[in-house]
Design a protein around this nucleic acid. Structure first.
Lengths: 133, 133
DNA sequence: CTACGTGCAAACTATTTGCCTACAA
DNA sequence: TTGTAGGCAAATAGTTTGCACGTAG
């Protein structure tokens, strides 16, 4: 595939190298800048979309309206803290039997599962209790 | 609660009266207009947000980036056809045991479940096979 | 020479907010 | 007169696109 995009490569490196689980475009953009691989926001966007298109990363949308990109790893679901914004990966909670039955009966062809539990992470939960906002 | 908002009332009536399961702001706006209850888009937005805030309707975001508002009904999950946009309610598929275990162990407090399966509805699936786009 | 990667700026979509007027309490 | 509803228009946020340039192949 000819010239490999520098930005795409930098994005993959960035995402592989940190513990953060999912990245907004803004975070990716800032991350590259921090690593001296600064690139234009639109270029980051295009590179991220391309990675998502060929399956190298997964794109998802949370209730906060911003898209996230995450590395492809084992299937998992997410906890989303609506206070601090943390996105925490957790083991898949979908009931496979119910799922299979549904797909068979309805004729619906599932291509992506989006399971997100919104709420408060342990830290924010404690925080909120002590200093009730 | 003082003057009841005409728009809020019209929205609830509209949503209760049709089979459509979830509504974008645009659809709500158009729906009111059709019913001779035309209102400004921003007023529809504010009314819908207010209903969502006091729990009369549920707001959710799909991968297409547009917010939807749906009546509160029994707990259910959704199938989202990425071709025709249909949002189909289905019985809840979440594994309650895994769910409870997770909530207990992680300290995460879940306030909302978002379970959406993206894919193709039966109709679009057939359509896509015959006239491969 | 031709395509693709990239930067820069402008366009777009879907909201979201400001401000002003009117009516109900 | 006081707070909220609702219209109108402008502002935002987050993405998305158009165009031009440069270099690898």
């Amino acid at each position: 595939m000819a010239r490999r995009s520098q930005i795409s490569a930098a994005l993959l490196t960035l995402m592989a190298g940190e513990e953060r689980h999912a990245w907004t475009l803004e975070e990716l953009h800032a991350g590259l800048a921090r690593d001296k691989s600064a690139a234009d926001f639109s270029s980051v966007f295009r590179a991220a979309e391309k990675l998502a298109a060929d399956g190298s990363v997964r794109k998802l949308r949370l209730d906060d309206g911003r898209a996230r990109y995450e590395r492809i790893t084992a299937r998992h679901d997410h906890l989303h803290c609506t206070r601090c914004g943390a996105l925490i990966p957790v083991a898949c909670m979908l009931d496979d039997d119910a799922f299979a039955a549904l797909e068979g009966a309805s004729g619906f062809l599932v291509t992506e599962r989006r399971v997100v539990l919104n709420g408060l992470c342990a830290a924010c939960r404690l925080d909120g209790e002590s200093q009730a906002a």
